[in-house]
């Protein structure tokens, strides 16, 4: 088991009104498994991913990472997990546009404090797998949407994480590029990575091992 979530709750207070975004949610994910989550905008999908990464703190509930309970209130512990165990991919790519592709990919390794030639060679290898090795010295801001997402995937992999969280990675891409990106994710699955993907695309939902619909803060298996 890579990750196990039990009885998770999260409430936001908006304009004095309490809105429950995550309601007693439980989820388990095995090694090499892809879970796809779909649902209406604002239903709490991104909040769930943010809770898993530790960027957002839940009100209560338990999170186990590799069977070990996580102290999610500790910023230091959650930052360490986020850096070493989780790779994240976003619909807006979230690259540093003024930096080169290589600098972007190396950033998690620099935060970890390991940016030697070994990691650099690994970064070149994964950029090659993502099909953008020739752009390593190009500024990220000059790339197309599809190329940016490939850089984001390479960046998510540089610290060899066991879990990939992809938040609508295909939202800003055309269908052909989306399928290429999903092929990349499938390749990662074959390499033993566990993936949680938030998407609205039917072909992605079909290819996932399990598919959930998020409704009123709960996950309903489809």
């Amino acid at each position: 088991m890579i990750i196990s979530i039990k009885n998770l709750n999260k409430t936001y207070k908006i304009a004095g009104e309490k809105i429950k975004v995550i309601d007693n949610l439980s989820l388990e994910l095995d090694k090499g498994e892809i879970i796809a989550i779909t649902g209406r905008s604002g239903c709490g999908k991104t909040t769930l991913l943010n809770i898993i990464t530790g960027v957002t703190k839940p009100d209560n509930g338990e999170i186990f990472f590799r069977e070990k309970k996580i102290k999610y209130w500790s910023d230091f512990i959650m930052s360490r997990i986020r850096n070493r165990e989780i790779g994240q991919i976003f619909q807006t790519f979230r690259l540093l546009d003024d930096e080169t592709v290589m600098s972007n990919v190396m950033m998690p390794a620099r935060i970890r404090g390991r940016a030697g030639s070994k990691i650099r060679n690994y970064a070149i290898e994964i950029l090659g797998k993502a099909g953008i090795a020739e752009y390593q010295n190009t500024r990220a801001g000059f790339l197309s949407g599809g190329q940016k997402q490939r850089v984001a995937i390479a960046r998510a992999l540089v610290n060899r994480p066991s879990l990939i969280l992809a938040d609508e990675p295909d939202a800003n891409l055309d269908i052909e590029t989306s399928m290429e990106i999903f092929s990349l994710l499938e390749m990662l699955k074959r390499e033993g990575k566990s993936i949680i993907i938030v998407t609205h695309k039917e072909y992605m939902l079909k290819k996932a091992d399990r598919t959930y619909k998020m409704e009123k803060g709960r996950l309903i298996e489809r």
């Binding site: 910023d75 930052s79 850096n83 994240q88 979230r94 950033m107």
Partner: peptide, 16 residues
């Protein structure tokens, strides 16, 4: 702020 958010997403602590 976007830079800091990205850094945080990638594993930087608030302290750092």
């Amino acid at each position: 702020i976007e830079y800091y958010r990205i850094m945080r997403t990638l594993g930087s602590t608030k302290f750092f």
